[in-house]
Amino acid sequence: MTPIDDELRAALQGRASALTPSPDPLAGIERRAQRIRRTRIGAAVAASALAVSAIAVAVPVLQDATSSGPDVPPFATAPASPTPAAASPFALNPLDPWMYRGADLDLLGPGTLKTIETDLGVNYGAASVELTPLFGQVWEPSGKFELFFLADVEMRDGVSQYFWGISETPNDAGPEFLLVEQLDEPAMALAAALPGDEGGRLLAVADPGVGGINYSPDGTPEAVSAMQELFPGVATVFIGAGSATDLLSVVDPSGQEIHRSAVPAVIASEQPSGEPVSVLDP
């Protein structure tokens, strides 16, 4: 050996003698092996969890795609409630009636309005009547006051209903009721064919905000014409003998038709005593 080899061996021997030998060299190897196993187990558990989640998502989709049975919702749901049709702002609301239009009610004479209300109840066997005037005019050929009214009538059995009608005053025997009918809901127009000098005259009362009231003889679209406006929402037209096919229509301010109905038959000029045109006859 050369002197250099001797020096290198001596240096390595000195370095080795300076290090403290491990008391158990196998223990370190075992600890490292355990750490490797724990790492591998954790990775396997995580992979299993991901696989289970994927299966949970995929199974319902697969069932939807392959199942031929009925669909069963996960929970019961209440059916959607139908949306009620909006009430027309032009319909007559008995709780908030149309404003009165027409001749001064003082022309009826003192106490006449109360007499009309009382006689209506007496004539038709009602327990009580609350009357609301809607339109009034003095018919010049006769000089009598024609009054369109709304009546809240409570019958003797306790049932309350709304009616509308037309009274005529003065008369020797008291107010004469030309017409009394149950109020339709929604009531878009109150119309009556009243007797005139040379034939029937159609008189219609509607909400004061409507665009107009039209008349169509025989229901012919080409013959539709606007009735003569007496007051906002009140119109009249001569109809002669009238026809079962005559039509009445109401339009809103834009000209859109909001109501159409048959024109009623002309009321006879003379009603037999105690037999008014009415649905309240006892």
Rank of each mutant, 00 (worst) to 15 (best):
Q137T: 14
Y162E: 04
L134F: 02
V138D: 03
L147C: 10
L134H: 00
L150M: 06
L134D: 09
E140V: 14
A192I: 00
L178P: 02
E176L: 12
D152M: 11
V129S: 04
Y162N: 12
V153Y: 02
L150A: 05
K144P: 08
E181K: 15
A189D: 07
P141S: 07
L183V: 02
L183W: 03
P141G: 11
P175V: 05
A191T: 15
A187P: 05
D157E: 11
P170D: 11
L147G: 05
Q137R: 15
V159R: 13
E176A: 13
L131R: 00
L179Y: 01
E168V: 13
R156W: 03
L131T: 06
A193R: 11
V159G: 04
Y162D: 14
F135R: 10
F148Q: 08
E176H: 13
A189H: 05
F135A: 12
P170S: 09
E146M: 13
E181M: 13
E185C: 03
R156N: 14
F135K: 00
P175E: 05
L134M: 11
S160I: 02
L179V: 11
G174D: 02
F148I: 01
P175A: 06
E140S: 14
D184C: 11
T132F: 04
P170C: 10
E154T: 15
Q137I: 09
A192F: 00
M155A: 14
P186W: 01
T169N: 11
D172V: 10
S142I: 04
A189V: 13
S160N: 09
L147W: 01
V159S: 13
P186I: 03
P133D: 11
F145M: 12
E140Y: 10
P170I: 03
W164I: 09
G158C: 01
D152G: 14
